[in-house]
């Protein structure tokens, strides 16, 4: 198991180097002078220009520049935002909990709905249940989620008035951020109604962000279930006189879950990409909204640092999925 872990981590190193090369190159690929880009739109006087050029090391050879960049990155120095002047890492860490909270809720929604629905479709193969699940999930998979979010806002927020339109919590409540997770902070604040407000703000964004993962999970669960139900060990389980709930829910599902877990892991990238759109629609103050605002504000240091950090998050999540995969699949666990 330890060797398994070490190999997996070792495989991440080239990818990490590649991503840093990409973010390093980014600033230099953008047409125009990097110093002027980093200085922002207000311009700069020639003395300051020369000073910055030395400070950022743009006068050194590219290889040295890259070396310095890597050293900075490894020390957690990702530069400062042009707009807020705050360190990029600090900004990222302040906003990241909001994105985690949204992504987690979206994923929980996707799994809670997608898994049972996929199982039903697989077990009741060829019935109206199966066809509806497949039809709806393909529609969900084809959904432009930025439009889906707007549609849900029109229906539930504007027409029915059930849910708020944007933000993480009603402006009526104010308390200091402790964990960064609104659900927890609102409970800690002890203010009446704060938690309810936080939950109601989370519902629509979670549904929107969870739609595509839900569709993927439902389809994968169905096909995996179909395959597993034909296996000999399912027949053995029934021959033992086990009730169908146990045959399907334990013997079949346990095996069917193996590919589904992989797919769930792969959805993390999809979630982060979807978060950009979802956060924009719902004015959710997370990483996605921050990144897209950085693009519009030409805040290149923020963009550069943010992308590197997102890539690292995706890499770490993929690593944990690999480990989880080893845990739930005994055949993998013993091979290494």
């Amino acid at each position: 198991m330890i060797r398994f872990l070490v190999t997996k981590i070792a495989l991440l190193i080239p990818t990490f180097v590649g991503v840093t090369l990409l973010t390093f190159a980014m600033i230099r690929l953008i047409p125009g002078d990097p110093i002027l880009l980093l200085a922002g739109e207000r311009g700069i006087d020639p003395d300051r220009y020369a000073e910055l050029r030395t400070q950022y090391g743009f006068d050194k050879p590219l290889l040295i520049q890259y070396g310095n960049y890597i050293v900075d990155v490894l020390q957690g120095d990702l530069g400062r935002s042009i707009v807020t002047k705050k360190p990029v890492l600090t900004e990222f860490l302040t906003l990241f909990p909001a994105t985690i909270e949204l992504s987690l809720c979206a994923m929980i929604f996707a799994v809670l709905v997608g898994l049972p629905v996929g199982i039903i479709a697989g077990v009741r193969r060829g019935t109206i249940w199966d066809h509806s699940v497949m039809g709806v999930s393909l529609t969900g998979y084809s959904m432009p989620i930025f439009w889906w979010g707007l549609l849900l806002i029109i229906l539930f927020s504007v027409n029915l008035g059930w849910t708020p339109v944007s933000g993480r919590i009603s402006l009526l409540y104010y308390f200091d951020s402790v964990t960064g997770f609104m659900l927890i902070d609102s409970l800690l604040s002890g203010q009446e109604g704060a938690f309810r407000s936080a939950v109601s703000h989370l519902i629509l964004p979670s549904i929107v962000l969870g739609t595509i993962p839900l569709a993927v999970i439902a389809r994968m669960t169905r096909s995996s279930m179909l395959e597993v139900l034909n296996e000999d060990y399912v027949r053995t389980a029934r021959a033992k006189g086990l009730p169908p709930v146990r045959v399907i829910g334990l013997h079949a599902l346990r095996n069917a879950l193996i590919p589904v877990v992989t797919v769930i892991g792969l959805q993390v990238g999809v979630l982060l990409a979807g978060a950009i759109l979802t956060e924009t629609i719902f004015s959710w103050p997370g990483i996605g909204k921050w990144l897209i605002e950085s693009v519009h504000r030409r805040d290149y240091p923020a963009l550069q640092g943010g992308i590197l950090l997102v890539a690292i998050v995706v890499m770490l999540v993929n690593l944990s999925v690999d480990l989880l995969y080893g845990l739930i699949n005994p055949r993998i666990r013993h091979r290494r």
């Binding site: 990818t15 990409l22 980014m26 990238g269 990409a273 759109l277 693009v295 963009l303």
Partner: peptide
Amino acid sequence: RAMDIMLALPALLLAIVIVA
């Protein structure tokens, strides 16, 4: 390896970087 690096970033985010 180059393809792996491209896959390490969510597709839409990579597209945003390129457009940026």
